[in-house]
Write a protein that binds this DNA or RNA. Structure first.
Lengths: 166, 166
DNA sequence: AAAAATCAATTGAAAATGAAAGTAATTTTC
DNA sequence: GAAAATTACTTTCATTTTCAATTGATTTTT
């Protein structure tokens, strides 16, 4: 296996570029999930929040924002709506009343369990023909990507060469 | 390697779930790219469109929409803006005047080449510590995921069990 | 060949998003 | 221990995105 070609290199093929495939695969997956969730009154964001709460409850708003890679304002609004819909409860933390603790309602757990089955079927379809070993390897690589990128704030070494269109 | 656990199964760990990592890794990557592109007057969507045009020019609007997994209205507006900024040219196809052919301007090519270098550095950082073989394997899996999901329109087999929160 | 159907792209109204400012609570500094 | 700084979240407002309908062009049907 030789050195990775980057965009702009001669012989570079976009369809074989890992980053392009990463973004596109995720977009298609999100699209499918979104369709499937619609009839349950959910969208991908509510789904992700419920999954995160199922994983760790209660969670603070900022914790959910970080783990769902969503901006706080967006999340605040979404959580208010979800509270109105009876999916979550928001309460100020006793120790530190700046913090808002979010928990799932039993109702939300019930809905989540149903939707998880559908999510699992989409997952199975997505990985049709991919071995368990390869799924594991892919997971590791994805975890690694996130860690690598979250660790390092990107510093623009060519900051002097600021080209601009028009 | 045993059977894959799905969300809701006992012993399931969200942080090890491939779909969660897929979405999160992509979100972090997009965030980093977005930051890096800002000073060049670009965003991830313009960047992706330019990459697609660099790969195949001219392209129709619908073709770009499909390959960038973006809704047509969004793309139309973005292309209009990009034309105003001197990045692309839009012309009705002679054979079929419903179709709008989009091409990059030389100016855009110049900008793209610069930004690609930065994109490549982010890519390298993302895959720090990942072998070339593993990058290749990941690419294949991602391609497979997309193909699998694009092929099959998801049919809700539990469509009778429509639960709804609240 | 006129009418109906389909298709590619655009536009208009409504919802979602995010940067920046605002608020309230806690911690740090002097 | 009061003033300043920080933190966690919320709100405001301008922009972006999307759904649904529309336009203009081509193809299909009758």
């Amino acid at each position: 296996m030789q050195k990775q070609l980057g965009p702009g290199d001669a012989g570079f093929v976009l369809d074989d570029y890992v980053m392009y495939n990463l973004v596109r695969a995720t977009a298609v997956y999100s699209e499918k999930m979104s369709e499937a969730l619609k009839s349950y009154g959910l969208n991908t964001m509510k789904w992700r929040i419920l999954m995160l709460l199922d994983d760790k409850s209660p969670s603070s708003v900022s914790d959910l924002a970080r783990r769902s890679v969503t901006k706080m304002p967006t999340l605040t609004r979404m959580l208010i709506r979800m509270e109105e819909e009876g999916l979550v409860k928001r309460t100020a933390l006793a120790d530190d009343r700046r913090v808002v603790e979010v928990t799932m309602t039993p109702n939300a757990v019930k809905t989540l369990r149903i939707v998880q089955k559908i999510g699992h079927r989409i997952f199975e379809r997505a990985f049709e023909g991919v071995s368990g070993a390869n799924i594991g390897a892919t997971t590791s690589v994805l975890q690694r990507i996130r860690e690598n990128l979250e660790r390092s704030p990107f510093e623009a070494t060519t900051s002097s060469v600021k080209a601009r269109a028009s």
